[in-house]
Design a binder for these strands. Structure first.
Lengths: 116, 116
DNA sequence: CAGTATCCCATTTGATACTG
DNA sequence: CAGTATCAAATGGGATACTG
């Protein structure tokens, strides 16, 4: 109880971040507004179904907005909401970790994959 | 290419964080050395199989160490490695997000679950 | 105590073809 | 272009009982 863990709420976050492609998808959205096709290419070889599923879920969770432009060549834009943008520090921290990995020489890593 | 995304490496991180219980599990390990039973109770109702699977995976990835004490009542301790501890900023960032959620009144949230 | 061994089920993800 | 519809395949997770 001296434990600063606030259960339930972190799970709200897990519901957002879970899924094989979600982190990768969000990373791209931090770079700005993206269209379905762009994301699909960026996350290749993700299937359209999976991409749609993820985007819909993020939409429901209030992380991204979906804007349809019914003009001649139809297109749709996905953009992070404010709530979504508040996730950025998490990704920045992830980037820092990745950097620390790259620069740290004593990466003992997986002995398993080395022996095979 | 102006995009600061370093592919491949972030996926190394995803391999570590993926899985239903991993985040929750790591959170507990940041609180110090834990024994199997402790983790099991803390993550209840996780199954022993799943807990073992996750711990083994984190071990392989160099995130935790497993120390066996073959004394009378056998016990095993799990502890974060240095590499594992470097993940903490990510969790702190997650905590910050959760806090921001709690304090932010304009949580539009899921319209779906509200209407049902 | 700290797992392992099995078996099963549910959810995710993927492949592909088709549509407003 | 941006999906949806379908069905199959893969994976992960869970329940339970047993063991060093």
């Amino acid at each position: 109880m001296s434990d600063p863990i606030c259960p339930g709420s972190i799970e709200r976050l897990l519901e957002i971040l879970e899924g094989k492609w979600t982190l990768l998808l969000l990373r791209h959205l931090f770079n700005g507004i993206k269209r379905f096709g762009e994301l699909r290419r960026a996350l290749h070889p993700i299937s359209p179904k999976t991409l749609t599923d993820r985007l819909r879920l993020l939409e429901e969770r209030g992380i991204v907005t979906r804007t349809v432009y019914s003009e001649v060549p139809l297109h749709v834009e996905y953009q992070l909401t404010e709530r979504g943008r508040r996730l950025e520090p998490i990704f920045i921290a992830m980037g820092v970790w990745v950097q620390s990995e790259a620069s740290d020489p004593k990466n003992e890593l997986v002995s398993k994959s080395l022996s095979s």
